[in-house]
């Protein structure tokens, strides 16, 4: 009984820690500055940029992650284990290091050629999307693989005995059954991309009204000791993030076959 109480107390302490940190923002919360910050062109630019970049990075990540996760879930192939290990890479390596790796890549001959002939990434919008894409791709693949693992292979086999091609079976059986996992993966990946800072800072820099995503804007405001403005931006970011997480939890909580 004592152990149970202690563990519940620990859980409540976790809640108190994070809730306390958020509530502590109120110390520097100024209604007028909050309103002014929220409605300022610079903030709206950051919100628009963040939403656009995170959505684009998430869509691109999912386009690659869906087939990759399906292959990892269903097939044994040379390099499968290595691929699964690489998925841990963005978790082990800090986003700043990942961003630095990207920046270094664009300074080698191949990277320079890509910048000159395909798309210019460094210190631009494409750089923000790329940094977020690289940071969230591993997470997206892992989440999608878990979603596909939940769908029994037997259902695909039965679909094929009923005349469905592998593609038809995938789109009519596997994808609908993995739907909740896919939506949850999209939301969580998007939320992570939205909050991405380290890699974005390395690749795209911190240029106001140019590469100023919400996390970069927070960093810039804090650098200028603008605590009230920082608090306003944090509240925006936290509100968007928590809403996304709440929606994802509701979806993940539903039975897969409901």
């Amino acid at each position: 009984m004592k152990g149970l109480r202690a563990s519940i107390a620990a859980a409540l302490l976790v809640l108190a820690l994070y809730a306390g940190l958020i509530v502590s923002l109120a110390w520097f919360l100024d209604g007028a500055i909050l309103r002014e910050t929220l409605l300022s062109e610079r903030t709206l630019f950051s919100v628009r940029l963040s939403l656009l970049a995170a959505t684009l990075a998430t869509v691109l990540a999912l386009l690659l992650a869906i087939p990759a996760a399906y292959a990892l879930s269903r097939h044994r192939f040379p390099g499968r284990e290595a691929t699964e290990t690489v998925l841990e890479f963005p978790i082990i390596v800090s986003p700043a290091a990942l961003g630095a790796i990207l920046l270094i890549f664009f300074n080698n001959p191949l990277g320079e050629w890509i910048q000159e002939n395909v798309l210019y990434f460094v210190f631009g919008f494409a750089g923000i999307v790329l940094a977020q894409f690289v940071t969230v791709l591993g997470l997206a693949v892992r989440m999608l693989k878990a979603a596909f693992d939940e769908v029994p292979v037997e259902l695909e086999t039965v679909a094929r005995t009923l005349g469905a091609s592998p593609w038809h079976g995938f789109f009519t059986i596997t994808l609908p059954l993995a739907k909740n996992g896919l939506i949850a993966a999209f939301i969580l990946t998007w939320a992570k991309a939205l909050g991405e800072f380290g890699a974005t800072l390395m690749v795209a820099g911190s240029m106001a009204m140019r590469t100023e995503t919400l996390p970069i804007a927070i960093y810039l405001r804090l650098s200028n000791a603008d605590l009230e403005g920082t608090v306003a931006l944090i509240l925006i970011l936290v509100t968007i993030g928590l809403t996304a997480l709440y929606v994802a939890r509701r979806l993940l909580g539903k039975a897969a076959y409901a």
Partner: peptide, 19 residues
């Protein structure tokens, strides 16, 4: 390929499509 064999298959767990 499986889909071109025209076999009827009832697996142990039936494989009914739950959705």
């Amino acid at each position: 390929p499986i889909e071109r064999r025209h076999l009827g298959y009832v697996p142990q767990h039936l494989g009914l499509f739950p959705h």
